[in-house]
Design a binder for these strands. Structure first.
Length: 577
RNA sequence: UGCCGGAUGGUGUAACGGUAGCACAACAGAUUCUGAAUCUGUUUGUCUAGGUUCAAAUCCUAGUCCGGCAACCA
């Protein structure tokens, strides 16, 4: 049985712990058997491959279990967030292949309800306005091994806190002068429960609410509320939030208690449901990749220092960078599923990502010929040379058809495909030797011409038609010199020279790969010059390339190398150098 | 030194008391009009020490190591 005909066994789904949790919740009838998730990026940077993992999990779980996933901008800190990012995030999530339908939200949509909830907590004696300065609070908070001590304002009357909180809101105080704290437990072994700040004063213009507010909720307070208001059932996040979960639960419990006591509070919920038990936070490990950095701060540093051309530099692990590099959404999704979901802090080899994109592109990419470093070949027997040859567009997919490629007596071949003094096991063209020309018969080298520097400048060959019975061990690619079009190609490589540029003694930037970008002029078969931006090819025997979406001009594409083909010969040769 | 997590080949993951499996990587071979792809095979693993059990990666105890937590960031 051939592979083609064999029934593709249903892809074995990895029942990772998140799937297990959801399935057991479903079985238990929690939340009426519904699944609602959310992807909540902070719009303070571009999305990267690490976010792709979260996106695939958040949207993927909703999809798999018949639920929905919200896209929500977690914009509770106006000092750091910008519209530019809000737009880019939507583009990237869509590109990855996910759809939030009408469920696009901002944390700031709920500022009124959050504020109202904060007042309720004050009224109930569960929050108070505190005047201890940020600096002094270090003393009050204590250290993990020792309990903290209570703020002098902890037991001020609720009416006083309420009055101050309202005046905070109207802008009567400076930043840092006052804050609102949840009254929980100054002796808790969990620092996050030692009367955490839930509202702070920020006199900043917000990208969405403008100047309406000058008090803004903290993440730990806002996030559970956002989830609850939207009817989220599974709030999936990364493991650094594990220690925040008790606070998350504290907020949710109080919210549900207040809702039960005061029917009007139901109005805060934009997606209420009679069978809603509240959201539950579960944490999984972030994705980390070798030969790159993944923190927004470090990526921003590379951008601002001009070490890359921007967030969308094809060497960046950002989704917009990967897109420009020629990565496909499908390859990234496969990659994320292959990596799996656990609570273990792992470091995934970039080789796996590269395998995923090769696998995808091998199936789909049209084949073309391009010579990166040309060497001239002149055919001496000019009789009966074909004017064109027919070449398959994709040997992996006969439906992709064929094309005509011009042929002539002057060809360009890859410089490395000829060696005057070949090492053992070298299968390509050598003096007196023969090779097959991809789709176009054979070449036998009769002599070489050299320039004044003694460098081989022209290889004189005899051409034989495809029907010739010639035993050769290699096939090389070529283009017809008079027909070839010059195009710019950019050969991208790994951004860093070491697997873990983070966490070294020296600054991560000292490990930048000086050869991560090499630009040169390649010669391509005529059809390639008409490539549209975003169109990709496999240049046979070389690599997968994509016409850059930004720098390509009509008739003058600029090609980015997505990923090389595997090259066992290079591996044999390299150790010898 | 407090709290919360975690530990399975080089890497990532599966096995939920019953044959340690899969993918990537590496290596070897077959095949090939891409030294690609494809196919076959090989190497390499349950953190340690005790215990429970007919049987332990899995359960228990103790330890070791790793990650996270002491922003008015998210």
């Amino acid at each position: 049985m051939t592979t083609e005909n064999s029934t593709p066994a249903a892809a074995p789904v990895n029942k990772h712990f998140v799937r297990q949790i959801i399935e057991s919740d479903l079985a238990a009838g929690r939340n009426g058997g519904r699944v609602v998730t959310r992807f909540p990026p902070e719009p303070n940077g571009y999305l990267h491959i690490g976010h792709a993992k979260a996106i695939c999990i958040d949207f993927g779980m909703a999809q798999e279990y018949g639920g929905r996933c919200h896209l929500r901008m977690d914009d509770t800190n106006p000092a750091k967030e910008e519209m530019e990012y809000i737009n880019a995030i939507q583009t990237d999530v869509r590109w990855l292949g996910f759809d939030w339908g009408r469920h696009f939200y901002h944390a700031s949509d709920y500022f009124d309800a959050m504020y109202a909830f904060a007042e309720k907590l004050i009224e109930r004696g569960q929050a108070y306005v505190c005047a201890v300065s940020q600096d002094d609070w270090k003393d009050y908070r204590g250290v993990p091994t020792r309990p903290g001590k209570e703020s002098p304002w902890r037991n001020r009357p609720a009416t006083e806190s309420l009055d101050l909180f309202r005046r905070m809101k109207t802008g009567e105080f400076k930043e840092g002068e006052l804050c609102l704290r949840a009254k929980i437990d100054m002796a808790s072994p969990n620092i996050h429960l030692r009367d955490p700040v839930i509202y702070r004063i920020l006199h900043a213009e917000h990208p969405h609410t403008g100047n309406k507010w000058c008090v803004y909720p903290m993440y730990d307070f806002a996030h559970p509320l956002e989830d609850a208001f939207e009817g989220v059932t599974h709030s999936l996040c990364s493991i650094e939030f594990e220690v925040h979960r008790p606070l998350y639960d504290w907020v949710i419990q109080n919210l549900l208690a207040i809702r039960a006591a005061e029917p009007a509070v139901a109005g805060w919920f934009v997606h209420d449901h009679p069978q809603y038990d509240g959201p539950q936070q579960n944490e999984f490990a972030r994705l980390d990749l070798t030969y790159t950095v993944m923190s927004k701060r470090k990526l921003l540093e590379l951008v601002e220092a001009g070490l890359v051309s921007g967030w969308d530099d094809p060497r960046m692990p950002t989704l917009c960078g990967l897109r420009r590099r020629g990565y496909t959404p499908a390859a990234i999704r496969t990659f994320v599923e292959t990596v799996g979901v656990t609570k273990f802090n792992s470091l995934t080899e970039v080789a796996l990502l590269e395998h995923c994109i090769r696998e995808d592109l091998n199936r789909s990419a049209l084949r073309r010929m391009a010579v990166l470093r040309p060497l001239k070949v002149t055919i001496e027997n000019v009789e009966n040379l074909p004017a064109t040859i027919e070449a398959q567009n994709n040997p992996e997919d006969p439906a992709a058809g064929t094309r005509q490629v011009p042929f002539s007596r002057e060809l360009l071949i890859e410089a490395e495909d000829f060696m005057e003094v070949p090492p053992p096991k070298y299968f390509r063209l050598t003096p007196g030797g023969s090779v097959r020309l991809r789709g176009a018969g054979f070449l036998t080298c009769t002599r070489v011409e050299k320039d004044s520097a003694g460098k081989v400048s022209n290889i004189i060959c005899k051409w034989s038609p495809p029907t010739t019975e010639l035993k050769v061990k290699a096939t090389i690619h070529w283009v017809s010199a008079p027909h070839a079009k010059p195009v710019t190609v950019r050969l991208y490589d790994r951004l860093f020279t070491v697997p873990e540029p983070d966490g070294q003694e020296q600054d991560f930037k000292t490990f930048l790969n000086p050869h991560s970008l090499e630009q040169l002029t390649a010669y391509v078969e005529p059809a390639v010059a008409a490539a549209q931006p975003g169109e990709g090819f496999q240049f046979e025997r070389v690599a997968y390339f994509v016409a850059d979406a930004l720098d390509s001009q009509p008739g003058a594409p600029v090609f980015n190398r997505t990923v090389t083909l595997k090259d066992t010969w290079a591996k044999v040769e390299k150790p010898k150098k």
